[in-house]
């Protein structure tokens, strides 16, 4: 039996699905895996989010968007809390989100077991070109257009592309 609170909690999650990442607008914040908890009490909502990177400038915009979205759908008070632990990981990105990234031309993150090793000068991950699907690609730079991405180039179709790097 579902209570009123269950229904409105589900309603909040549905509304949050419509809030997108300002830097990768094809991804919802749920695809990104940064919404950690939602609690509803009458007309008050508490939303817990976690940043992708400490300095991600999108977080402030995302908080604002969450607030606007919920206020405009009848909630009277919206509290947004940021938590840092457990730290966000690309494992929390949904499979649907990864597909959306690929279709958008950004290579989605690989499973994280390969990440963040300290060995130097190694391409520690094989990354698939989102344009022609070739695995014959190389990393141009560890850091791309935003903190969450690195820059790759395809050796087959020569297109450069962003890779949403493992974290």
């Amino acid at each position: 039996m579902s209570s009123v609170t269950d229904i409105s909690t589900r309603q909040v999650w549905d509304l949050l699905e419509e809030v997108t990442d300002p830097e990768v607008p094809v991804l919802s914040i749920l695809d990104l895996g940064i919404v950690r908890d939602v609690k509803v009490e009458n007309t008050t909502v508490n939303v817990v989010i976690t940043p992708t990177y400490s300095g991600c400038p999108a977080m402030d915009v995302i908080s604002m968007s969450i607030r606007m979205q919920l206020l405009s759908h009848g909630f009277k008070e919206v509290n947004i809390t940021q938590v840092l632990s457990p730290a966000w990981t690309t494992d929390w990105m949904t499979e649907a989100g990864k597909e959306k990234l690929r279709a958008y031309g950004i290579a989605p993150p690989n499973p994280t077991q390969q990440v963040c090793k300290m060995e130097l000068f190694v391409d520690d991950e094989a990354v698939q070109c989102p344009h022609c699907n070739s695995w014959n690609t190389r990393r141009i730079s560890e850091f791309g257009s935003t903190a969450c991405k690195s820059l790759f180039q395809c050796n087959d179709c020569y297109e450069p592309f962003d890779y949403f790097k493992c974290h």
Binding site: Y53, S54, G55, S141, L151
Partner: peptide
């Protein structure tokens, strides 16, 4: 360009840490 971006990304991470 790529290394300019890399260093400013590092700068942004540090700024984020300082904010926390």
């Amino acid at each position: 360009l790529e290394q300019d971006i890399a260093l400013t990304n590092i700068s942004l991470d540090l700024l984020g840490q300082s904010r926390s």
